Structure formats: structure tokens, C-alpha cells
Computed example of a mutant assay.
Amino acid sequence: MDRLLRAKYAVSVVLTMAAFSAGAQADELQARANALFKPIPAQPPALPGNQATAARVALGKALYFDRRLSKSQQISCNSCHDVGTGGADQQRTSIGHNWQRGPRNSPTTFNAAYNFVQFWDGRAKDLAEQAGGPMQNPLEMANTPDAVVATLKSIPDYLPRFKAAFPGTADPITLDNATSAIAVFEATLVTPNAPFDKYLRGDANALTHEQKEGLRTFMDKGCIACHRGVNIGGEMYAKFGLIKAPGSDIRPAADKGRFAISKSSGDEFVYKVPTLRNITLTAPYFHSGQVRDLGEAVKIMGEAQLGQKLSDTDVNNIVLFLGSLTGAQPKVDYPVLPPSGPDTPAPPYP
């Protein structure tokens, strides 16, 4: 009898130690994660010098969806950054004016307010500057600042909306005010409460065992060198092909990234590190948009950035972890836009 009791006691001690060890490992993983990542706040971030009043956000929302800001009157911000498909358009590269294709994949607008710069090459310092770029790009909306302003002024109901959004301004309908309004609307496109956010806030059961293993692999392999912080990316530039250059189909030789802006040889093939939030919703991947399978993208990054050939198990677990980064999607009702006035330009096509 004593022998049986001693055996049961020994088993109990072993199980208790195993449970303690597993709990300690879980606490250690959670502590490591909290040192590197931050959950998306429930409230949208404030933009410096751009107050997010209700009137300004509502105006920005209307402008985001208004195709009349483009020369053809067929393309809006939402055309390439669709709020129904993760803030992107699921295209390799977006279709713009006269069916031209842009040179790079459209980044998501979701959580873009947390990026330290905008566009793949960082040529816009903030969301307002970014919003004005496509309007004037001949491959995208192909308009001019004067034409955009003239169109907005020709739509009677936009004047009271701009006055409410920018009170005390003698001439409120300007391109700067339009892009500022779009920016504060875009800042509302945040995706909080992803399973990973809940895990960071202390819910150890928010991730599956496989997702936790993926998180551990993500950290241990070195992905966190670039993908960290609240947006799990978007905080720095990095060379694509740091260790091994990807194939020219994935990293086209003609697109040298930030080099086109800085003219510094050290910036060849350097790009803004993209956010990984909602990554399962925003295929295809990379600035070239050439890879649609997330597992394949993880393998490419392992070799190109880390110099490692990741095992199938590691890849699968990382992909499962990345799935935990999908947050609550913004609920955006399509706005009722103000009707055109008698002087509003007609679309240029018969």
C-alpha cells in the first residue's frame, strides 16, 4: 500500500512540475511578446495638427469614396484600397487611368496611421501627403490639383461640408483640406482586438498551441528584426534581399525602391517594411504582388532576409500565427455622396 501511495505521489509531483514548466514557458513567451509588440488601441490614433472632428471624418469618408476626384471619374481611393477587402484590392498591381497598371502592389490603408512613412518607398511623410499622391499620378487617378479643387467647388453640397470640417476658413475647399480630411478618415480604419492583441493583453488562451509555436518561431528565427511594434512592421526601411536576392520576378531589377527618392546607392532595393496585420486578407504579397500564397511568401522571406531555409512545420506554424493578426474589420457604410452641379465636369468619355 505504501509503495502504491509513493508511486502515486511521484506521478503527482512529475505532473505538477510539468504543468509548472509549461506555465512558465507560456509566461516567458507572453513576456517576450509584450516586450516586442503592442496591441492595437481601441481608439484611432490622433494625427498631429489634424483634428478628427465628426464633420472632418465624415467629409474624408465621402472624399475617400468619391470617384469624381479622378480624371476619368471612375477611380476613387477605395478602388485600390477597398475597405471590404482588407484595405487593399487583391490585385498584383492596381488598375488605374485608362486601364494602366501601377508599378507596385497597393498597401493596405488599414492601420496605416501607425506607419512611420507612407508608400513602399516612403516618399510621403504622412497620410495627408499620401492621399494627394494618387490624385496627381498619371498612372492612377491622373488628375491635377487645380482640376480636383474645381470639381469639388462645382459640387454644391461640398461647400457646407468643407465649412463644417474647417470652420473659420475663408476658402475651405482646397486640396490640402481635402487630403487632411481623407487622412483623418483613414486614421479611423484600425483593426483592434485580433487574437494576438488579446494574447498581448493577458489572455493566454487567445492563441492556439500551433499559433504560439509560430509566434515563438517568428521571434527565434529573427523576423522581429523588422516586424515588431504595434503594426508588426511599418517602423523602418529594410533591403529586400538582405542575405539573398529573390528572383527578378519577385524583385524586379528596374524597381530599386527608395533609391529613386534618395539617390543613395545604399537604398537600392530598400523599402518600407510592411505591416503584417490582416496579412491573410491582403494577398498578393511583396511590392511586386507576385506571390499569392502566404506560406510561399514566408519561405521567400526566410531565405531572402534571414538566410534560412525554414522547415515546413516552421512555415505552417508561422502562417497560423500570422492568421492571429486579423483584427475586427472597420464597419464602413457606403456614404451618400453629394450630387454633381451644373458646372461639374462630365466624364471625359462618350
Rank of each mutant, 00 (worst) to 15 (best):
A283E: 04
H97S: 09
D66R: 00
E28G: 02
R32S: 14
T109C: 04
M1Q: 11
A112E: 02
T144Q: 13
N316E: 12
L47P: 01
E235G: 04
N231T: 04
F166W: 10
T191M: 10
P45G: 12
D267C: 10
K221V: 15
R56Q: 12
P342R: 08
A254W: 11
D343C: 01
A46C: 00
V13F: 04
T179A: 02
R292I: 02
A164C: 03
Q130C: 08
T179H: 00
L322S: 02
L215Y: 04
S311E: 10
G87R: 01
T93E: 10
V148H: 01
V332N: 07
S94C: 10
N78R: 14
G222L: 08
A328M: 06
Q136E: 13
A18C: 12
Q91D: 15
D157T: 07
Y158R: 05
P39H: 09
L159F: 04
A283G: 08
V14R: 05
R68D: 03
Y271K: 09
Q90E: 12
P350L: 14
D255A: 06
N98A: 14
T188H: 02
S311N: 06
F286N: 04
T179C: 03
S21E: 09
K163R: 15
T344W: 07
Y349T: 13
P342K: 11
N115K: 06
R56F: 04
D157P: 09
F65G: 03
Y114P: 00
Q73T: 10
G302W: 02
S264D: 15
A22Y: 09
R68Q: 09
S72Q: 13
A24G: 01
